[in-house]
Design a protein around this nucleic acid. Structure first.
Lengths: 206, 206
DNA sequence: GTCTATATAGCGATAGAC
DNA sequence: GTCTATCGCTATATAGAC
């Protein structure tokens, strides 16, 4: 059999550019932006710094912005998975928080949100990264809002709820990782479900 | 009282060590841990790097841990101010979120939580900073829980609520700073007040 | 497209004069 | 207690061979 890539093979083969983006996304989740060097990214991807700059002439900032969007897509999948797990919006939101807790514990709290750390480090300093962060956070809120409106919650209330859900999940993730426990996200799951049910009742006073 | 400092003076006089800690706390809020250098800290404090190491032989890590606690105390004061503004726990919690929004907007979203950025960058890499972060987050939760129990909420429910309140405020701060709007924190204030009232009713079914 | 080699700068940290 | 000077290292980024 040839050495070339077949999707069915166990060891996935990806092109160099993708390996670089993946390595960057991983380090952004673990150490943020400033703590991640092009040299280490290259080493993880199996290339030299020169190759990194070949694909990303805009340097570290361009690479980070693209890796941030790449990593954000993974969290989008987690959200989709949680939201599709049940038709009930409140239960679905709780499922998302619990999935996140499981995912974080799996990496022993090392691999977190690809947006949070990099965004906090570069606010007001890198418009490129800030824009990518903002778009990811907005996208997640849209996914949630769609589920909530589909469940009968009014548009405005759904958008507000979606915003608070992302806020709470982001903050609870911080507390989980710092304390190395899943309690904050499990508690958040409970409270967010209560909050969703509260808006359901407000909108539908039968 | 010492001879050098008088609190009533307009231009506050502080000793070198305190100036270094303050400068570090400021940079931690703006750029996080990795993006802050000893050289810049010294420049901001008006001393050379050598002086910084004179006061902090443990280096950047020791200095950051102490500055983090120093900066956390400022947020403690903001929390106290919000909690003391009204006897009603739900209103008090909302007041805290709104005070935070005002404080962030005042710096044009540049100066954020002294814990969040540094903690996310150093999880699993600096036990010293991680411990200081954890203690600050726990302390804030204790302040909130006391207010909630004083308002008639049962101990366990109050602790859980306090955890979610800090989670939501931390996450909403991230969303506010990234989007340069106060909407996430204002929405969070509303939702957190609803959540507190919900536990009040559960505990006291009159 | 990937490499070696390097330019330039900044980093954390230390030694020792004053 | 504060300084100057510097060590050893790493950073981002570039130039050019292959």
């Amino acid at each position: 059999m040839r050495a070339q890539a077949k999707k069915t093979e166990a060891a996935e083969v990806v092109d160099t550019r993708t390996r670089i983006v993946r390595a960057t996304a991983l380090f952004l989740q673990r150490q943020g932006y400033e703590g991640t060097s092009i040299k280490r990214i290259g080493a993880e991807a199996g290339v030299t710094p020169g190759s990194v700059y070949h694909f990303f002439p805009g340097g570290k900032e361009q690479l980070a912005a693209e890796a941030l969007r790449y990593g954000a897509e993974e969290f989008t999948e987690l959200l989709r998975s949680g939201l599709d797990s049940t038709p009930d919006p409140a239960d679905a939101v709780a499922a998302c928080a619990l999935l996140l807790a499981d995912s974080l514990r799996e990496s022993e709290w090392t691999d977190g949100c690809p947006v949070a750390a990099a965004a906090l480090e570069t606010i007001g300093a890198s418009p490129e990264i800030q824009r990518a962060s903002d778009e990811s956070l907005q996208h997640w809120q849209n996914l949630l809002a769609n589920k909530l409106t589909a469940g009968g919650i009014a548009e405005a209330a759904a958008r507000a709820l979606a915003c608070t859900i992302i806020s709470t999940m982001e903050g609870a993730e911080l507390l989980c990782r710092v304390s190395a426990t899943d309690q904050p996200l499990r508690t958040a799951a409970e409270h967010l479900a209560q909050l969703v049910r509260l808006q359901e009742r407000s909108a539908d006073p039968e």
